[in-house]
Amino acid sequence: MLLMFTAAPVVKACINPADSYAVEVVLNKPGIVYVPYPAFSALHNAIVENGTFIFRSHYDERLIVMLWNASDGPHLRVQVPVEWNETVLTKTTFNASLLITADALEKLKAIGWKKIDNLTFARNDVTIALKPVAGNECTSDRDCATGGCSGEVCAPRKEATEIITPCVYKPWYNCLSLTSCGCVNGLCTWKPNDAFEACLREHGVDPSKVIRAGYFELEVEAVNRSDGEVNAAVKDFLSAFGISCDVSLTLVKTSVTRLSPSLDPSEVSASKALKAELDWLIETGALRMDESDVEGVLRAAEWGNAGHNSHIGWYETENGTSAWIPYDESLNPLLVRCFTSEVPAYELPNGTAYVGPTLTKPPSEDSATTSGSAEGEVCGPGIVALLALLAAFARRR
């Protein structure tokens, strides 16, 4: 099966867009020992390209693992296969008043929207990003004050003293002790939080009637979706915020070439994928590494932490200590700014890599022989690794 993914980067490599779909660690902490041989003398279901071992993931065979030694230490990279594809992008933007509450987020989750970050959501190749549009009532909490007979209204300070409301105390006013009146995105409002919103609902009050909704610009991007599918997705998204009216959208379509992963990265865990390979290397004896260091690496493991600028390593932090962190978060990192779009293809054997029992010993300057069975044969998928090693040896000569 032919799988597309980036080649192993070197220390001074350029940024590759495929790094967004990979996680990579350099095992550069003093005390960590990487000795692939003699264990890898019997490595099967792997190929070797320019000194890099390449094989399928022990966590999910759809993922690719790359292992190589560089001047800064051994690198381990797990990659979601990618390829360049022609895609049709549909984009649109519009403004809407939305109150982002815990209820709204739960409704989005229930209808299949995944939270990419605090204000970005995706479902079925449709992504909606919320960009706050600041109001002009305030710039800080000092510009806001409470008004009304019971102090139940949050408004701009100049207006608050003039607000008159009936002097009838309502039970939900007790909820105001759980929040404060202040400036949120340019608007004076009772500040939203889970406890305050829950209290309002317990008293039968819709939080959107008390908390002033924020104003957002919604940026919509869809990949290979029809106009009808985009409109339906936007309508469904807005329904989670209690908006049922149809929005007139101006859709703009463009054809672009973009790097596409073979599977949704959210379906697989970068941390679990990296752990599977570290555990396997330790089990085979190719790697000696403390469990505490494994845990430290995994805490920093997420898709996108790969490549020269963002790979994980044992680096000095800004406070002078050392920790397993992405390189670009370390003290005075030397970041590269060049880019490459090269995505080589490799044909990998089916199944995950394993060690033994048949030997596939690589050639050396002293000996180019390979030990195998009693008849001197190399059986099964291990022949792939052997042929690659012989080819590499021939090039060196």
Rank of each mutant, 00 (worst) to 15 (best):
M4T: 00
A7I: 07
A8K: 05
E24M: 07
N28W: 02
P30M: 01
P38F: 07
I47D: 02
R56C: 10
H58Y: 11
D60Y: 12
R62E: 09
M66N: 12
S71V: 08
R77M: 13
T87K: 15
V88M: 13
L99T: 06
E106T: 05
K107L: 13
K109N: 15
K109Y: 08
N118P: 00
N124S: 15
A134Y: 13
G135T: 02
N136F: 14
T139K: 14
R142L: 10
R142T: 04
C144Y: 06
G147Y: 05
C149A: 15
G151N: 12
E152A: 11
R157Y: 05
A160I: 02
C175R: 13
S177Q: 07
G182S: 03
G186Y: 07
C188H: 03
K191M: 08
K191G: 03
L200Q: 03
P207I: 13
G214V: 09
Y215V: 08
R225L: 05
S226K: 06
E229L: 01
A232T: 04
V234Q: 00
D246C: 00
K253R: 15
S260K: 10
L263I: 14
K275F: 14
A276S: 15
W280V: 03
G285V: 05
L287A: 04
L287Y: 06
M289T: 07
L298P: 01
N305E: 08
T317K: 01
N319D: 12
A323R: 13
L334E: 11
P344V: 11
E347Q: 03
L348M: 05
N350A: 13
A353Q: 04
G356T: 01
G356K: 10
P363T: 12
S367W: 11
C379H: 06
P381Q: 03
A385P: 02
L387H: 06
R397H: 11
